[in-house]
Design a protein around this nucleic acid. Sequence first.
DNA 1: TTATATGTTCTTTATTATGGAACATCATTC
DNA 2: GAATGATGTTCCATAATAAAGAACATATAA
Lengths: 254, 254
Amino acid sequence: MSNVQSIERALTILNKLSEYPDGIQIARLTEQVGLTKSTIHRLLSTLVSMNYVVKDEETDKYKLGLQVLFLSRNLLNNSSIVTIAKPYLEKLSQEVNETVHLCIEDHGEVIYIDKIESNQTIRMYSRIGSRAPMYCTGVGKVLLSGAAPEHVDQVISKTDFIPKTPYTITSKEAFLKEIESVKQQGYALDNSENEEVLRCIAAPIYDHKGKIIASFSISGPSNRVTMELINHTLIEKMKQYSIAISRNLGYSGS
Amino acid sequence: MSNVQSIERALTILNKLSEYPDGIQIARLTEQVGLTKSTIHRLLSTLVSMNYVVKDEETDKYKLGLQVLFLSRNLLNNSSIVTIAKPYLEKLSQEVNETVHLCIEDHGEVIYIDKIESNQTIRMYSRIGSRAPMYCTGVGKVLLSGAAPEHVDQVISKTDFIPKTPYTITSKEAFLKEIESVKQQGYALDNSENEEVLRCIAAPIYDHKGKIIASFSISGPSNRVTMELINHTLIEKMKQYSIAISRNLGYSGS
DNA sequence: TTATATGTTCTTTATTATGGAACATCATTC
DNA sequence: GAATGATGTTCCATAATAAAGAACATATAA
């Protein structure tokens, strides 16, 4: 029941460090984490000794060590979704020449587990491992459209509907309605609801039981990914890929 | 000076879990890690509460959680080597139609920080974040060829020269000689020294100070990556790419 | 049913982590 | 160049914390 304090603290520090790719000093960490210098120093020393953290001797800054990368090395390979979906997503990205993402839900958030970049010159910055809220992303809506009502309620109750753009859905009622319509349609849009200049279309991936276990999306600047293109081409394309990938996971529905 | 015991133990468990992508039970972990059931249970509970570990309620198996992936999300993006080298490595991989790796040294080991797969049907299994010893890899030889003699000695003294194949270098003296000749040549081979069927050629990447900070390699089955191909084409090609990438990092040498 | 293997919870104990203080190091300012 | 301030590091007494055995719970197999 009760957790180990020092481990909680150490992991909190790791989380914090991940926000500072160039490292952070102990003094800054004390402000951020709220522990004494000496405690943080000791915790960091332990993390360093295990290669989870590296200390830059020049600047006295601490940053994540490569052991963290080593940990995650098998995290996605084993996950058959990534492996199975990859060739399809690559083909899709090539066809539409836009970035394609693959996501699953984790603790009420969207987490990006794969990404195929378009060859367009303006590339989006890398996202694998990143999290995003569900209420303002196409993939999030799709994932919730396949979840049990209680789970949807639970996620929504924890959601802060922050208006990221003028188009963001900001009420529970509207969002519930939106999820319902996603369920009907079989796809979801993010119509500049997360970032002003971005438009996405997302579709579900089903497992053999017909459960939605992942979602993939096409994202691109609104001027390229127009509503016309979506209605004309992308909806149909996404549905095709949705079924193709799901079939490969043992899905037998339509 | 003295480390926090519970953190060391927790990280040891994380390391262990990374070996079991499908999860492992507490009982197995006690055997592997040598702690009591209750201790491991408590440590795991803490890790679970922080989302570093996930418990499969069906099988009672514990495996790494996606927070680990979240941690590493910025680990390589910030690293300018990956970003700068990527387009070159992609082009190289396309030209030779073989897998290309990018590596740095970490605590006396080679660590793979990027990988571009060839389009050949037989793909190598993913490696980003993986570690490999330096004595039996081309990239390892290259990295050591640029290191200070004391560092080379230190790494070698910690190295177990295990003969992975009949061609593996198994003595300090031979390895030192090999590194010396790599330094002369400006490239290194792994002539089936790590895996019987594999041949690699590796070259250095220099920073603005002329220091070797990374190494990249072409790897492929020996029947495709023949010694003839290497001598004829690849050596020259690797040297060109080596200089091109290094130039982009501010290197001004030849 | 019993036995065995496993996960979970509880409680006592002493080990262990904690944080203040002292010390060290460095950069900046007067 | 001394003094100040900001930082990292080490030490140590104390109390809080984690440890592990035992008891309990649950599931599977004999």
